[in-house]
Structures are given as structure tokens and as C-alpha cells.
Amino acid sequence: MSVQHLHTDEELFVLLRTGDHEAYKQIFERFYGVLYLHALKILRDEDEAKDIVQELFEMLWRKKDTLLLNGSLSAYLYAATRNMVLNLIEHKKVKVRYLDSLKEFIDEDPCLPDVLVREKELKHMIEKEIEALPVKMGEIFKLSRTEHLSHKEIATQLQLSELTVKTQVKRALKILKPKFGFIIGLITTFIS
């Protein structure tokens, strides 16, 4: 009997949660090939499929302490792979739309240097207002808007409750909105 079949998927998952590297290795060996084929079938790009599955296994190890299964390990891995593939596809679409609109904007606007100067000034004003926020609020707001972290990720990173993070982001927006109006929604663009 092969080493891969000594444990069920669920037993391997339990061992993985305890930091058992051998269990992680067995999960990798058991699922890498089928997950790669699953991603490849959708993406039709070998390198992207490999990257997706590699990312999945990196995430699996990184978040092993906090992962919870609502079903089987294989169902979780398939769903995670599918979601990562769909996120990649959506990201590509957004990137293409952004680049197309940027090209269109550049082609139509002969005053681009003036626009860039105004954009730089606006970026500086926004950064200055964010720096004026209370220290912890500013840190949370930056992690939310420039690092694109979820409230849960910020709470974990800063050892705060999710409610605290959510409240601080709302308060920051409440302070910044009167100063910048509709532009506050575009902060990510200007300060990234």
C-alpha cells in the first residue's frame, strides 16, 4: 500500500491543521495533478494553471490553522481552485477594460500633462488628509484601501476585532467624505 493511502483526506486535513508537514505533502501529492487539470481545462494556459494550483497550496499551508471544512477536503480544494480561476479571469477582464479606457483617455486628451499635474496634487491632498487621521484609524484605512485587505485580514494583522476595524473604516470615510466628496471612492486609484 502506498504512503499516500495511509490516511483518509479528512485525517490528513486534521494532521495538516496541527502543522504536520508530511500530511501537507501527502495532500499535495494526492491532489496537485487533478487540480492542475481542473484549472487547465478552464484557463487553457499551462503556466497560469500551475500558478493557480501552486498559490492554492501555498494558501493551504499559510492558513492551515484557521481553515474549516464544511464538506470533504477534495470538494474544498476543487471549489477553491475554481474560485481562484474565476478571480483570475475577472482580474484579466478588469485589467483589459482599464487599459482600454486609459488608452482611449490618452488618445482623446491633448492636455495630459496638466491632468497629470492635477492628479499628483490631488493625490498629495488625499495622502495629507489620511495622514491627519488618528494613527490607528489611518493605518486601518490604508490597509483597507491601498493594501485591499478585508476587515478580517486587517483585524488579524493588527490583533483587533473585525467590528473595530469596520468601525474605524466607517469613521475614516465619514471624516474624509466631506473633504473630497465623490473622489473618496477613487482613493485606491490615487494612492496606490
Rank of each mutant, 00 (worst) to 15 (best):
F180C: 04
L86F: 13
S74H: 11
K64S: 05
D20F: 03
F141R: 12
L122H: 00
I42P: 02
L15S: 05
F13K: 14
I42K: 15
I126D: 00
I130L: 15
E147K: 15
T167P: 00
A75C: 01
L133W: 06
L77F: 07
R44W: 04
V94L: 15
D51M: 08
K166E: 04
H151G: 10
D107P: 03
H148K: 10
A39G: 09
T18H: 02
E58I: 06
I183K: 07
I191L: 06
R97M: 12
L37R: 07
K179D: 00
K92M: 09
K64D: 00
A132E: 10
L116T: 02
K93M: 13
T146R: 09
K123V: 03
K92C: 05
L35Q: 14
K123I: 01
P113F: 13
T146A: 05
T188Y: 04
Y32Q: 08
E162Q: 06
S192R: 13
M137I: 07
L160S: 02
S161A: 04
L160Q: 02
I140G: 00
D45Q: 15
I140N: 00
F141S: 10
G185M: 05
K103C: 03
I52C: 09
K170S: 07
A79E: 15
L69S: 01
V135L: 10
A172N: 01
L186H: 07
H5K: 05
F190L: 15
H148M: 09
E58G: 11
S192I: 10
I191Y: 00
E48Y: 05
V135D: 01
H151M: 06
K93D: 07
I175L: 09
L73V: 11
Q159N: 08
E48G: 03
D65I: 06
I130K: 09
K166Q: 11
Y32W: 06
D45S: 07
Y98W: 06
T189C: 02
E55P: 00
E162A: 15
T188K: 14
T189G: 01
T167I: 13
P134Q: 12
L112Y: 04
E55M: 14
D65N: 09
L12D: 05
T66S: 13
K63E: 08
G19W: 14
F13Y: 12
R30G: 04
T8C: 05
I184R: 11
K136S: 02
H124D: 02
L67A: 02
T189D: 01
V96W: 02
L16S: 10
E22S: 14
Y76H: 11
I89A: 08
N83G: 03
L173Q: 07
